[in-house]
Amino acid sequence: MPSHRTQMKIVGEILSTTMDTDSQDGTNITHLIRMANISHGRISTILGNLVSQGLLEQVDSKRSCKYKISSSGKEFLLAYKTFREFSEDFGLTI
């Protein structure tokens, strides 16, 4: 049975994707949608929140909107991965 993904897990996947493809150009939204397996409407809201919280940086691009992980985002991702393990040790999801 497929398990329900929490908002936190989706945020973790988005940040991981931007981290994995970390470059000056940033990651475009289509790639994020594909990697995080989420609808355009939903990811737009989440990306807006992440940018407003300083975890992602919006990169100006001629063709499309791109996103790059910030230093705060990297710290958050590290904490997320650490405490995801911690929660899983208790048989729970973060």
Partner: peptide, 22 residues
């Protein structure tokens, strides 16, 4: 036992992070 594996020194305490998980 599980908590002994947590590298807490690498995790910085950041009070600016907000909760949007709800």
């Amino acid at each position: 036992i599980p908590i002994s594996r947590i590298p807490l020194q690498k995790v910085k305490f950041d009070p600016e992070l907000k909760d949007d998980s709800t």
